[in-house]
């Protein structure tokens, strides 16, 4: 390798000299280059300024609570994976297990009783059709700096049902049961809340 090729290779390492991630051998070789080359010293100075400016300017706010709520919704909405041990069990074993459960159920008379669904409505799941009857739908854009706990408190206060969302950009749809003459008041209350950037009533479909 010629000296000029060697120096070019070392110049190519300067960005990682600046961020401090070179190996000890590489670092020493680059420092030797810096001692003998004015061009390398000028490039180093430029790259150091570039790094400072990039770090200062590319700092972005992260989705935070909204992103976490969305992730929770995603993990709850995906099908539960079957553990490997269950998947690998022989088919006759599963048949026997199912038969055993059926016998036990018959013995205790479970099949004689019609089950009643008392499952509470979970936040983030779609409410049943009956729950949306007589309710007004609203679409809310959550303020970027709002905490999800503030939104939750507001929804509880208004006895609102979450119909959809939050989306990646912080939009939720809610259903609120209120007398027709109070729809405007509810909308005003939503729009004046600091956690809500914008609220609008949407037509029920």
């Amino acid at each position: 390798m010629t000296d000029s090729n060697h120096d070019e290779n070392l110049m190519a390492l300067l960005p990682w000299y600046v961020n401090g991630t070179l190996t000890e051998d590489e670092r020493q070789a680059v420092e030797a280059l810096l001692q003998r080359s004015a061009e390398a010293r000028a490039t180093l100075e430029t790259l150091q300024t570039l790094q400072t400016d990039i770090k200062a300017e590319l700092q972005e706010p992260v989705p935070g609570d909204l992103g976490w709520k969305r992730l929770q919704k995603s993990i709850h909405s995906q099908p539960t994976p079957i553990p490997k041990t269950q998947r690998d069990r022989p088919i006759w074993n599963r048949f026997l297990a199912a038969a055993a459960v059926l016998i036990i159920a018959l013995q205790v008379g479970l099949l004689l009783k019609t089950p009643t669904d008392t499952t509470p409505q979970l936040l983030g799941t779609k409410p049943g059709t009956e729950q949306l009857q007589d309710a007004q739908l609203y679409r809310l854009v959550i303020a970027p700096d709002a905490r999800w706990s503030e939104v939750e408190a507001l929804l509880l206060e208004l006895n609102a049902q979450l119909v959809d969302g939050p989306s990646a950009v912080g939009v939720v749809s809610v259903a609120i049961k209120a007398p027709a003459d109070q729809a405007e008041t509810v909308l005003e209350q939503l729009n004046s809340h600091p956690a809500i950037e914008h609220a609008q009533a949407v037509r029920n479909e």
């Binding site: 390492l13 960005p15 990682w16 600046v18 961020n19 401090g20 991630t21 070179l22 570039l50 790094q51 990039i54 770090k55 590319l58």
Partner: peptide, 10 residues
């Protein structure tokens, strides 16, 4: 970005 913001080695 990975070099100057995240400080990754090459």
């Amino acid at each position: 970005y990975l070099t100057f913001f995240e400080g990754c080695s090459y």
